[in-house]
Amino acid sequence: MTAPSLLSASVALLKRDLGMTLTRGGGPLLAVGFYITLMAMIPLSVGPDTATLSRIAPGVTWLCLALSSLLSLERLFERDYDDAVFDLLRLGPLPLELVALLKCLAQWVGTGLILSILTPLVMIILGAAPALALIGLVAALLGSLSFALIGGIGASLALGARKGGVLMALLVLPFYVPPVIFGAGLMQAAQISASPLQALAFLSAYALFALALAPIAMGAALRSALN
């Protein structure tokens, strides 16, 4: 009986989940489609005035990023819960906390990362200055990572509740507020050429906080839901 290696098990799980995120049920297209449609509605609702649009573009983009990140959360753990795959995963070498974290990261690469790459593009289309693209991308990466991890906590808490999607959105959205504040603040600072460092530091701190807290919280919630 040789001990299965933690690393090869983690890689196997990450590969499996990434494959499933990218292929099942439309994969990232769903979130991307939602994001772009939402963005296309903004000029229609506030009017095509370029000055207004370019002023609100960064903030509104952040709101749309937060909402799009909610979309695929419901299925993060639910598929494997329904298929009893957790029975297999729990008897493997990885602790449940790590299993949950890897699932979150796979989900983030499959949706959050792609949305983040789109973010500077969408900002520029809405009229933000092209010089903001790089800082916008960095901020969106950090923000979407926080969204994915905090969302994972919500998904694990709502697991087992039938139609837990709305419940989950309600649980999770308040905790999406800090990254939205820091992210949008960062973009405003960059817009008026002030130093964005302070907001960037807060945004990174929140992502790290989520990275540290989420596995513990998800592990505990999953344990109670799976029993």
Partner: peptide, 13 residues
């Protein structure tokens, strides 16, 4: 095949 491969590398088999 995918399931077998995943289970083998996850469980170390």
């Amino acid at each position: 095949a995918q399931e077998l491969e995943f289970q083998a590398s996850y469980l170390g088999g």
